Computed example of a mutant assay.
Amino acid sequence: MPRPTLNDSKTYPDLEQQPAPQATVAEPRRRGRGAGLNMSGRFERLATEAFDDGWDGLEDLPAFKTSVQEERARTIITRNASPDLSFDRSVNPYRGCEHGCIYCFARPSHAFMGLSPGLDFETRLFAKPNAAELLERELSRPGYTVRPIAIGTNTDPYQPIERRYKIMREVLEVLDRCNHPVAIVTKSALVARDADILSRMAERNLAKVALSITTLDRKLCRAMEPRASTPSKRLEAVKALSDAGIPTSVMIAPVIPALTDSELESILEAAHEHGAAEAGFILLRLPLEVSELFRDWLVRERPDKYRHVMSLIRSMRDGKDYDAKWGERMRGKGPYADQIARRFQLAAKRLGLNTRRRKLDSEQFISPQKGGVQLDLFGS
């Protein structure tokens, strides 16, 4: 396949057409949200769509408001066997995410709840108040093998509702008592609230934190990640955690070609200046409904960039919006993908990032049953 160019409509002729399979929700109803669509979930037998029939009925529809439903989960540790991931287990205190990042690859998971990956994902949230209790129970099971638990790999554990529910803090308290290693990824400066627990764990080489920073452009961030912390607040959190002795890194996730990839070096420089010791990146992923949501967002927010962004994405995904192949879904392939990877490597090397990858300690674990939750039958 020839490498597409900005003016090459023959390679991807559909790029000339703006995507309009769904009616965009009126701006007053979605103000402060990332998605412009609220399509029905892919498992639903019937699809519904609001439209203006000329009688001004849409003007009477209320704005989308955040609602939280408490979910009594039955299990809390999720396992995976992906060769692309550095962890094999994770914990998700919440379903859905109020941050509203338009590119979030977790959006399709809301379809399993009978809800839309669009506006429902960022407004109809689920909290798991029994997460810490379940975690303690699962860690105490006979034969449990210790490896670092990743948190924030699906929806953000420090999204705004965490201020009220404090589920993430309760989870950390369990991990701290058990000497269990944890790796956190977040887009929220709220993570600095738990620096007291994380610093204690870091002293035992049991914790590390990654702040995800996509852009340093405050205006673009507001449009793309409407309810996440501003880039400057995230960098302040990097410094606060680093100053507290907590190993901190920055994830440029995702890198969006022709929109944010020009900032790659400047983000790494800012991360280094604020105390980050490691860094990583992930290329934009558009699985399932995320593709339609992202393309609709591009047409609304960056119409002049639409053809260029999508052309480059497809040049790295075998002509598709997304390719889920192991080894390629995080990085893409082709000349442009190689260029992004090489730029990252050179900048990280120049700044002294990633000179030593920290491996968390899994040898200090104390099962909850041996640590006071349940008395040992024979004592010690």
Rank of each mutant, 00 (worst) to 15 (best):
A127L: 04
D84V: 01
M224Q: 09
K233D: 15
F121G: 04
E292K: 08
E71S: 02
L377C: 10
L211Y: 07
G334S: 09
A202K: 13
N130A: 15
T78L: 06
P303Y: 02
L259C: 05
K208I: 03
K187S: 10
G100E: 05
L268W: 02
D376Q: 06
K208C: 04
S311W: 10
S380M: 09
G319Y: 10
R147N: 04
R314S: 02
Q364S: 13
W55G: 05
E16D: 00
P62I: 05
E16H: 00
A276I: 07
K320H: 15
L268C: 01
L6A: 10
D52R: 10
L15K: 00
R331M: 04
L119T: 11
R342W: 06
A258H: 04
A47G: 07
E203N: 08
E70A: 14
Y94F: 14
R302F: 12
T186M: 05
K333M: 07
L134M: 02
V255Y: 00
A63Q: 06
Y165P: 00
L134K: 02
A195Y: 08
F126W: 09
R234H: 13
V373I: 05
P287Y: 00
T355I: 09
K219P: 03
A277E: 14
L190M: 14
A183S: 08
L220C: 07
V373A: 14
R89K: 14
Q339L: 14
L288A: 15
L283V: 01
A347L: 01
A202P: 12
V238C: 07
G327W: 04
S362M: 13
S9M: 07
K320N: 13
T260V: 09
L125V: 12
P303W: 00
A131F: 12
I102F: 01
K10M: 07
E136C: 12
N7Q: 12
P160H: 04
L190D: 03
T66S: 08
R45N: 15
E328T: 13
F344M: 07
T186K: 02
P368I: 03
V91R: 03
D261Y: 06
M168C: 14
R342N: 12
L15I: 01
A47C: 09
E138H: 12
S232V: 13
T186V: 05
L377F: 15
T155C: 10
